[in-house]
Amino acid sequence: MVVSQEKENGVLIKYFIIKKNLQHSVLKVKDLSVGYSVRGKDLIIAKDINFSLQPGELIGIVGANGVGKSTLLRTLAKIQPKLNGEIEINGKNILKYKPLELASELSLVLTEKIPSKNITVIELIALGRQPYTNWIGALNKNDIRKIKEAIALVNLQELENKKCYELSDGQLQKVMISRALAQDTSLIILDEPTTHLDIYHKAYILKILKKIAFETGKTILFSSHEIDLAIQLCDKMLVMSKNKTTFGDPCSLIEEGKFNELFPKDLIEFDTKTGSFRVNQ
């Protein structure tokens, strides 16, 4: 009995290992440099970026201001061109995607304010279905189901018919996340989703992202300044410092002392025991 149980477990574990190996990378980045091209000259902001993301993972990008987090995310989202290296989404080079194809693989939550808030929450979330709707944007049954699912995942049922200008920053951020969910992509990229929020809502938003990644198997990549929260919640992290970008799981990154390299040490220092920064007294 016990033996057979063990055997079964063994088979199960094997099965999971195989499944893990078969899992493709949703996003694969090789030797990427990002930055700007000014009059034919490349202005590199970050280089030698390598990582690969699996389905269902929550990944945080951390680093000091100006180190290139947003530039990297904008490059991955094809908002600005890369300088060097390769980006693959679901095994296909990002350059080979047509805009509409990319829209069904990758959705965004940006830091920029939306110009018009005179639409209801559900109208805004429904815009996430634009890549799938016909020329005039009519929603079919499947679209409506996806919208309802996206609303339920983020618990927005009660705000559904509110106008966006009536919402708080935290609520609006949830709406934008829900819109990205309605777009039904395998990868969601968020640029600093927790800025302007209080500590409770910062944790709340990241918790929701964790839940979405776990429940839907979507890969979620976000940048953040909440290093301590990210360490607690992320499956993997990308630590960007001036000259080097390191990718790994939070525990090994702590062991390697990567977080200590983030900032100059004259003011704050990383405490490996608590996984947070402390002010030097």
Binding site: I79, L100, T133
Partner: peptide
């Protein structure tokens, strides 16, 4: 203008979002 209705609604989110929704 009617042909542009869908794109006009995408533009309510700003140009970057509109592009991420597959709009040319």
């Amino acid at each position: 203008s009617i042909l542009s209705l869908k794109n006009l609604n995408s533009l309510l989110l700003g140009e970057n979002y509109a592009r991420s929704l597959g709009m040319n």
